[in-house]
Design a binder for these strands. Sequence first.
RNA 1: CGGGGUGUAGCGCAGUUGGCAGCGCACCGCGUUUGGGACGCGGGGGUCGGCGGUUCAAGUCCGCCCACCCCGACCA
Length: 493
Amino acid sequence: MRFSQLFGQTLREAPADSASAGLAFLARAAYLRTPSRLLPLGQRAYNRLSGLFHSELDLIGGQEISPDAVPFALAESEIQSYRQLPRLLFSRMFPGMSLAVLAPSEGSRDKQTAIILESVNRITSQLKLPILVSASASVFYPHIQGSTSLLKCPTCGYIEPLELAQHTAVSPSPEPLLAAEKVLTPECPTIEALAGYLNLPESRTAKALMYMARIGDKEEFLFVVVRGDKVLSLPKLKQVTGAIDLYPASVEQIEAVGAEPGYASPVGLKNVRIIVDELIPVSPNLVAGANEHGYHLLNTNYGRDYNASIVADLTTSQAGDPCPKCQTPLESLNAELLVSTERYIPSVNFGSFTDEHGQSAPVWHARIRIDIARLLTSAADTHHDDKGLTLPAAIAPFDVYLVALPGKTLDTLSAADTLYENLQTTGASVLYDDRNERAGVKFNDADLIGCPVRITLGERNLQNGMIEYKLRSSQESQLIPLHEVISHLQSTA
RNA sequence: CGGGGUGUAGCGCAGUUGGCAGCGCACCGCGUUUGGGACGCGGGGGUCGGCGGUUCAAGUCCGCCCACCCCGACCA
């Protein structure tokens, strides 16, 4: 590629709202304008990164399908026998890759997932990217400005996003159950107001949350109860209910099931799917709504006053909570999600097959999304210096940055043209800076864009038949005879 | 959800008591330069985030909305 033909220009100053140093350099170096708007240089780096994953997936039997082919639907129509499992499908669609594991059992699926994570790990270690793998098999890039909050155990290394971290089981409080009692609680539609009015800690209250859930092709009203001091985790609620989508119920929908917005309670509700957090059954004598405007009930107790169809861990953790593995207080950190893993509970819509014993069995699915665009920005955050990008050779947009400096007596430009042609015939990708610019401009852009090798053809050295050969990663350059450039490049590459 | 901030040329920014929309970089032309972001002269480029209001006159004042950034909090 001749630089004079390149689409997109380098910037002397980064956009003011650049989210990170790496993103600032990617914008300055004309790789991209925003993380989702790649320019040709950025697309080349993206393609190389994508190619690394493609090669790894080939090695472990991954097979590509078109981006709009739905793996669930394909499994239903194509999988008949246990001999056809497990399979790994993938498709490519910006900003990354979507993988689907189809397996004959939970164990097989998790094994396939682990194999994929090993492949991801080989690439991230090749690129020298520091990553964290969560207990739920997602991959994160730790970054101070990351948009995901993780909890990490400093002792055993347990890592999980805030919303998914498990809680340690709490044994029931020995407190005797008291009789329920209706009390007047004016102007107390929130837990904070209620706890303040009754002069009780928020942990002595039960909080009701109402959602409409899309489960399969049906819509269902969910009445969720968590303790007043806890925050509901929507991802956990999705997991335990199998809901694809959740959204808050409207006032009309709440009233339709017999509850009172602001003073809602599971006590006395009929024909409603009640789901409670696991802390509720072990927390006696909680204050809950009375389903009557302005009133709450003291001393409600799970099991005595109401029951639920599901009792599960439903709340978000926070820094300081005990590690579920070793009880050490968890620490929080920010990170970017690079690879997300979702493991599904089998469903009739996911396909079934005949197993070794002639019995019908459901297909187990996992979906893994690799965010290649974010991997690129993470690589830029990891690999840069004060002059620009220093991306690993495997994902740099070009192998060689060829600088031609015009001379007074020698025709350096046609010498550079020839070298450019010759380099390309060896298979090297070359960004040839043929612009009519001063040397400083070219060198600065070379540092900014960060191709692993820089070759400079100038009159000063060409008089002696030499060119200047410099690695982006090193400070010094070396002089090499012009006719040995190609062999030198091949021996060091 | 609340509070604060920002929004003006591709990028970075200035714009005072309301009075012709500016600067640096980038871009175009000519000339001089030419090994680490040159210089001179000339030039082009604007829905001042959007809608409405006040006013003879709004980038500027008022109201509403949108987007992004920072901080905080979070619910039936």
